[in-house]
Design a protein around this nucleic acid. Structure first.
Lengths: 161, 161
DNA sequence: GGCAATTGCTTCAGGTCTCAACGAATGTCT
DNA sequence: AGACATTCGTTGAGACCTGAAGCAATTGCC
């Protein structure tokens, strides 16, 4: 048995979490930069906008801004601006509820729906392309193991709300 | 054998990449939001600043802004602003090279070095804490499998530079 | 040497992001 | 009913981020 290997294993084993975190960050950054670039080039959209539209796409009746905020993990203040811009170019429609005049509901316009469908199709193609060299079995395992990481992180947030 | 399960496997197998991508995004976002929050609360720093300082910490002689930019995956224009702010509060020092007056080198100040060491220690603790419920073997496998994803993505960027 | 291409950083416009504070509408409690 | 608290969205300051354009220093080619 190689002592040096044992030693380095012991050393590096200690920082396993940190390494994984850095790789997680790097991988996500790399991919999202590429996706951003393509969304911009081919559709004049941004990733947060795409994300928001994706949520609205699966809810025909629209969503309250608060719901949108928590589903996209985007702060309230930020949702306001996003929705404003998307409404300005006719992709979505915003209206107040008569019952409760505090809440605003956003939903896709007809134009927005077709617009999004085009983007979604391309988006899925890009993702597949980028992960083309990863075996299906690996993808599947990654999905489940990443789930564990997410669960663990979720349970260790400060001041759970 | 359960036909329904086969059917759903066939269905969902098609979107495996997309699902993984979404989970990757969600996990990273969740964790980085938490790290941001804590860095801000306890050190008055931001994640990109921490990232930049980490690069400088391991290079005593400092780095050119271009190097910093590529190592942190942050655009040039953005590095300028980051470095300006960090220089303003005395964390880093910026100086032009006499040989080539185009290049600027940034390095940690003494104050910055101690400051960063405190942050790094806390940062590593937080990460470990968040991943506490994930088994070491899983961490190790994730590291290698995520590496595959990163490699694959890297080879499928548009207009490779 | 002289001039074009390249390199390295800065600047700018527009979008995203967080946190904190605000204002209006609704709920709750006495 | 009246006072207080909560919920929902907006606003504002400051930082980050991208892509593109700008400018200065350096290199390379003739």
């Amino acid at each position: 048995m190689d002592l040096e290997l044992v030693a380095s294993d012991a050393q590096e084993g200690k920082k396993q979490e940190l390494k994984l975190w850095l790789r997680l960050l790097a991988t996500t950054k790399l991919m999202s930069q590429e996706i951003r670039r393509r969304l911009r080039r081919e559709f004049g959209a941004t990733l947060p906008q795409f994300d928001l539209l994706a949520q609205l796409y699966r809810e025909k009746d629209g969503l309250r801004l608060g719901e949108l905020s928590s589903r996209t993990m985007v702060t309230n203040g930020n949702v306001t601006g996003l929705v404003e811009r998307l409404e300005a170019d006719g992709t979505i429609i915003r209206e107040r509820l008569p019952d409760d005049k505090r809440v605003t509901v956003a939903r896709l316009s007809e134009k927005g729906r077709t617009y999004f469908e085009g983007m979604a199709e391309a988006h899925e193609r890009w993702i597949k392309e980028m992960m083309a060299e990863v075996e299906p079995a690996v993808l599947k395992r990654l999905l489940s193991e990443l789930g564990q990481v997410k669960e663990s992180a979720q349970r260790h947030l400060s001041e759970e709300d």
